[in-house]
Simulated scan of single mutants.
Amino acid sequence: MSSAVLYLAIVAVWAVVLVPMWLRRDSESSGFSRLLGKRGEEEELDEPEEPAGAPAPARRRSGRAAVIARRRRRTSGLTLLLATSIAVVAAGYAPWWIALPPTLLLAAHLTLLRVAVGMDTTRRQERRARAQEARRAAAQQPQAEIIELSAPAEEEVFDQYADDRRAVGE
């Protein structure tokens, strides 16, 4: 009985990882490169070039939104797996150590999320510092001299509707 539960737990753990990969059909990158966090060249381009009459392709999420959605899905899946394993142990169908792998997986995932948040914060701060430095540099550049262009006072302005003017040949 306990070996069947162990096999079921192993299948459940792999299902949490593999089923979302199988459900996503992505021609640009394979499942292995997605696990490594690599992107295809097509994903890096903002807008693909198209002929005028071609329909627009379905838009993908921006990189940041896709990463956040993937993190949420993974956290939800691991939490559900942990809750299921705890329920199986509480019901007496499996020994206590069956809940250990999902607990370790969730703890490792949360640790990696904490590191990722720190990296995201550092990148955001660096980006803000670069933008602020660029604004300072633009403000310190010398301004162009403004030259006022005005007509000289003695120049006569032509008025075609004046009474004393006539067209040539009249």
Score class of each variant (00 low, 15 high):
Arg130Gly: 04
Gly92Phe: 03
Ser3Cys: 05
Leu8Asp: 08
Ser85Glu: 12
Val117Pro: 00
Val115Phe: 03
Glu43Ile: 07
Ala15Thr: 14
Asp163Ile: 07
Pro95Ala: 13
Ala107Trp: 13
Arg123His: 04
Ala15Ile: 03
Ala138Gln: 14
Pro57His: 10
Ile98Phe: 07
Tyr7Glu: 05
Ala83Arg: 09
Gln140Ile: 02
Leu113Ser: 10
Arg130Met: 13
Val89Glu: 06
Gly92Pro: 02
Glu41Trp: 13
Arg124Tyr: 11
Trp96Lys: 03
Ala116Cys: 01
Ala87Arg: 06
Ala108Met: 11
Leu149Ile: 01
Ala167His: 07
Glu42Gly: 04
Ile147Gln: 14
Val168Asp: 11
Arg136Lys: 13
Val89Ile: 12
Thr111Val: 10
Leu112Ser: 09
Arg136Phe: 00
Ala153Lys: 05
Val117Gly: 02
Phe158Asp: 08
Val19Pro: 01
Ala137Gln: 15
Leu100Asp: 00
Glu155Asn: 02
Glu28Leu: 06
Val5Pro: 00
Arg71Ala: 14
Pro48Cys: 07
Ala162Gly: 12
His109Cys: 07
Ala9Leu: 01
Trp22Leu: 15
Ala69Tyr: 05
Leu45Met: 15
Arg127Ala: 15
Arg61Gly: 07
Arg59Trp: 01
Arg124Ile: 04
Arg24Leu: 11
Phe32Lys: 02
Leu106Asp: 08
Ser29Val: 14
Ala139Ile: 02
Gly118Ile: 04
Pro48His: 00
Glu126Tyr: 08
Gln160Ala: 15
Asp159Leu: 12
Thr84Cys: 11
Arg123Ala: 14
